[in-house]
Write a protein that binds this DNA or RNA. Structure first.
Lengths: 199, 199
DNA sequence: TGCAAAGCGGAGGATGCCTCCGTATCGTAT
DNA sequence: ATACGATACGGAGGCATCCTCCGCTTTGCA
């Protein structure tokens, strides 16, 4: 189902693997609760391992974020394929974007920071991007083929807009959905009255 | 022209006023270059004053941000009134949002962080919000009255979407403008074919 | 059971945040 | 011009976090 294997550095030795899992779990929880600026020492404490262990496994904050993101990315992609099977083209795209948004609302800023991360240049994030693009483009292309989305749009644009919606930490779910509606409207072909400012 | 006086704490004594200006200038440059997480000690060094001076004048990072934002806010509001005089309703709104975006592109993440800040609860940011709302609503209401923007949208929604566009630090100006076009399309009434996902 | 490889964890140097207070400067009154 | 009180300056220092380094422990294989 997932076309590209995402890099995974989970170690093989029993104790190391156990600590790896503890760290990723603690990191996911802590990042979700206190944002991605959380203290790494706090995460190590929460995981019940020494700070040295954290740094050996994850040489930088980014590396730890990557490990957390792998699972989130996987989940995001899986849902795209689900919606593709179950819904009509535009609805599938809309549902996917809405689920992406709802997921972000429940996980603090993780989703929006993830969107930012997908713009980064690291090899890891590029690999993630490939996967998300493959899943998202499936939905987007079908919606385009059905004439329900403007042909000149690309997925990066759409993701960026949706990711920007809950960028500012606290947003009411109601407002978030309203903003998504605006974006969804903007995706549709300028069939009649509407035309963008410059083309 | 600007309806509400924004608070200003610029001191009166000569040396203090000079240092105040140096600090605000250094802060604006540093925040634009390295984001609002920049070291305050770095800013003090850049301004050529001691760290103590910075903290006496600006008891917190937020206080320093406020001083930087005052001028930006003023400039954003002024432009709204200019566009209102010079352009047709929808074009004025579009031009204002586009200038807001262009300004953000040239100033790093300042503009988008400003958008986030406008959602905050501090008295200062509330005052800023009042001013921006007054200016923005002038444009938005006229565009609504002209039937070119959906009546149920509010300014906070629009600002948030636009602010989200260049949230992720590095964005190509070309892409940013494309995203703004999508948003602008989304603002227009669902005249014919286009209709939002849920109403 | 023994041993080498792999992993563990925390001490410690560097940096940033913020406070406190002795010293220097400014503006005014004489 | 001078003196003096009010105001401002600046950096030392306490605390938190980041990240590195290295001596000790655990693991898994022979």
């Amino acid at each position: 189902m997932a076309p590209q294997p995402l890099p995974c550095t989970r170690p093989t030795r029993a104790d190391a693997a156990r600590n790896y899992d503890r760290l990723v779990t603690a990191a996911r929880e802590t990042f979700a609760e206190h944002g991605t600026d959380s203290s790494l020492e706090e995460i190590a404490r929460r995981a019940g391992v020494g700070i040295g262990t954290l740094y050996r496994r994850f040489p930088s904050r980014t590396a730890l974020l990557e490990a957390v993101y792998v699972e989130e990315i996987q989940s995001v992609c899986d849902r795209a394929y689900d919606f593709d099977r179950e819904l009509e083209p535009f609805d599938a795209l809309a549902a996917w974007l809405r689920s992406f948004l709802g997921y972000g609302l429940s996980k603090g800023t993780l989703a929006s920071e993830l969107t930012v991360a997908l713009g980064k240049d690291s090899p890891f994030f590029k690999a993630c991007k490939v996967n998300v693009q493959e899943a998202g483009n499936l939905l987007l292309d079908k919606a385009k083929a059905a004439g329900e989305v403007r042909a000149e749009l690309d997925l990066a644009d759409v993701m960026r807009l949706v990711g920007g919606i809950n960028m500012g930490r606290d947003i009411e779910p109601e407002q978030a959905n309203r903003l998504l509606d605006i974006v969804l409207c903007g995706l549709r072909p300028a069939a009649a009255a509407a035309s963008p400012a410059k083309g």
